[in-house]
Design a protein around this nucleic acid. Structure first.
Lengths: 124, 124
DNA sequence: TTATTAAGATTACGGTTGTAATAGTTAGGA
DNA sequence: TCCTAACTATTACAACCGTAATCTTAATAA
């Protein structure tokens, strides 16, 4: 339920969140683009995720289709909390300020953010 | 140098960053407010940080004063990278958007951010 | 029906983390 | 000088992680 998803496991989750139901070897193929893990490794990760009950599967003949049980947004929430807590004393504002000051943003992005803030301001 | 600092270790670092040179028992006292760890535990963390060479100490008589060897901003940088990579495909913009949309901000904070963006826009 | 084979399940193994207990050393007081 | 208190260093240990090899089972082709 609120088990943390590790960095390696996240790779698998990302597949399932974006591409939906997948067989183990499909997950492996997808991950292979980015990580040089063996299929065994990917299988291990899948198993740990099953144990943590954050994914499940349906069996269709010899094909096992895995799918997520938790939403991406929820997991992001959990990680974000820990990140905020640890680095910014739990204050989202500090984090935003940090990102705006320390990261490169294009002029368009800045404008987009400003507009977003305007909207947020008016409906608060 | 670029060793990751774990969640527990971070607690110790935070003391040293904010209050500067401290003896082990002072660190323990400071942390006790927030975590119910024994002094032994805190000592372990201090030792691991010494091994990772992210802190050091000076011996003054029987007093050991610990101090950080790496800057907070640097460690934040490292953690932030991993956070961005994992949750937002490495795109700071996505993170900022997420924070602005999902976190509670006061009207004043929103205005502060807008002003900050204006400044950034003009000197870019 | 049986052998093959493609899954999944179990087991492995060294390194890290959280959490702590025990052992060793040394500065200072008696 | 020697003991002791105050520190540090070493060791512990289970859980978790990254990474993977081996064992089982069951679907299918022959």
């Amino acid at each position: 339920m609120n088990s943390r998803i590790t960095e390696a496991e996240w790779e698998v989750m990302e597949c399932l969140w974006t591409r939906g139901n997948m067989a183990a070897n499909e997950i492996f193929e997808a991950i292979r683009q980015r990580k040089s893990w063996t299929d065994k490794t990917v299988k291990s990760l899948i198993n740990r995720l099953l144990n943590k009950e954050v994914i499940s599967f349906v069996k269709k003949g010899r094909r096992y289709e895995y799918y997520p049980l938790v939403e991406r947004s929820h997991c992001i929430q959990v990680e974000k909390r820990s990140f905020l807590e640890r680095l910014f004393g739990g204050r989202p504002m500090s984090a935003i300020v940090h990102f705006i000051n320390e990261e490169q943003l294009t002029r368009e992005e800045i404008d987009e953010l400003k507009q977003m803030l305007d909207e947020k301001r008016s409906d608060s």
